[in-house]
């Protein structure tokens, strides 16, 4: 399930926006109210808030406890046998095998996850929406070509290809040519734009059939005008909601790449790298926080976004069934 698509949410391309489907849906304002009152939304927003807070407060916490995210404190944090402590001594969640503060690193990990997730998903949104608009509206040969591209892109095994792509970034001395964060962003975006393209293409094809488009053509409106003023406003909400749906999947993508050792590399704190380190050293048996701190952080981040995006889809997405 590490591949990037959120297949539970590949949208159904039916059900145009025909206003409220049941007596309960009500107006936009009512839907907004219902969205913000739903306990799932509140819980999700609270979790996201917590993660954001952690990301912002990371440097502050580091300054207070006096441990930088990549600084090593073997004297304070490793026992005589070289095993890391699991707490105390100013190390809230203990230390890792190199004597680094697990708590501080976990907070910094939030920055990495959010940054890579948000940037890559946004790139995918922009590229995918553009491709989908063109493929769906122009149709014919353009559509076939673009669809064939999407098919081919889907046939690549994400992780295996990513493993090879990452070696591109290896300089002559085995160092990185550009910041690995950007490589990860590129790979994740490369493997997720297709879902936006499919979504938007399907919506465009459906909207194109509706008579208000015929009316616009009949009144002499040009292609660009129709795409920008008639179609785009109708697909954008769904695409943006899908952004929120895809975001947690992309955060998982980054973590998985890092876990396999081809994403963010130690000592930069990334949750995936931290878990890989816990696995490789096997030290989590003595210092469970090595595993649990990044695992729980990943969990609450993804859960938060999942909760909110599900609610968004349920309340606002014309392509969703509202269940």
């Amino acid at each position: 399930m590490t591949v990037l698509a959120r297949r539970d949410s590949i949208p159904k391309l039916t059900g145009p926006d025909r206003g409220p489907k049941d007596p309960a849906s009500g107006t936009a304002a009512a839907r907004r109210r219902a969205f913000f009152r739903d306990p799932a939304t509140i819980a999700g927003l609270a979790l996201i808030g917590l993660v954001l807070l952690g990301a912002i407060a990371a440097p502050l916490v580091a300054a207070i406890v006096g441990h930088g995210p990549i600084e090593q404190f073997p004297d304070e944090s490793l026992s005589d046998t070289g095993l890391p402590i699991s707490g105390g001594n100013g190390f809230l969640l203990g230390a890792d095998d190199s004597g680094r503060d697990v708590f501080v690193r976990t907070l910094y990990g939030a920055q990495v996850s959010l940054f890579i997730g948000i940037v890559s998903t946004t790139i995918a949104l922009v590229v995918g929406t553009a491709v989908g608009l063109i493929a769906g509206f122009v149709g014919g040969r353009t559509d076939n070509t673009l669809s064939a591209f999407t098919d081919i892109a889907l046939a690549f095994p994400f992780l295996i290809t990513a493993l090879s792509v990452v070696t591109l970034n290896r300089g002559p001395q085995g160092d990185d040519v550009i910041d690995p964060a950007w490589v990860v962003i590129g790979i994740v975006a490369l493997f997720s734009w297709t879902y936006f393209a499919r979504l938007v293409r399907g919506l465009v094809i459906e909207i194109k059939q509706r008579s208000f488009i015929h009316a616009a053509i009949g009144s002499g409106a040009g292609r660009t005008r129709i795409i920008l003023t008639e179609i785009l406003p109708n697909v954008l909400p769904a695409a943006i909601i899908y952004w929120a749906v895809q975001l947690p999947a992309n955060i998982i993508g980054e973590a998985s790449l890092s876990f396999l050792g081809v994403g963010i590399k130690a000592p930069t704190p990334s949750w995936g790298t931290m878990i890989a380190n816990a696995q490789q050293t096997g030290l989590y048996q003595y210092q469970p926080w090595l595993l649990l701190a990044p695992a729980i952080s990943l969990f609450i981040t993804i859960l938060g976004f999942n909760l909110v995006s599900t609610q968004l889809r349920r309340r606002f997405d014309p392509t969703s069934t509202g269940k």
Partner: peptide, 13 residues
């Protein structure tokens, strides 16, 4: 929700 929010490797670990 729980398992949707856990990457495979985290579940495994």
């Amino acid at each position: 929700y729980t398992f949707l929010s856990l990457p495979t490797f985290v579940t495994g670990m």
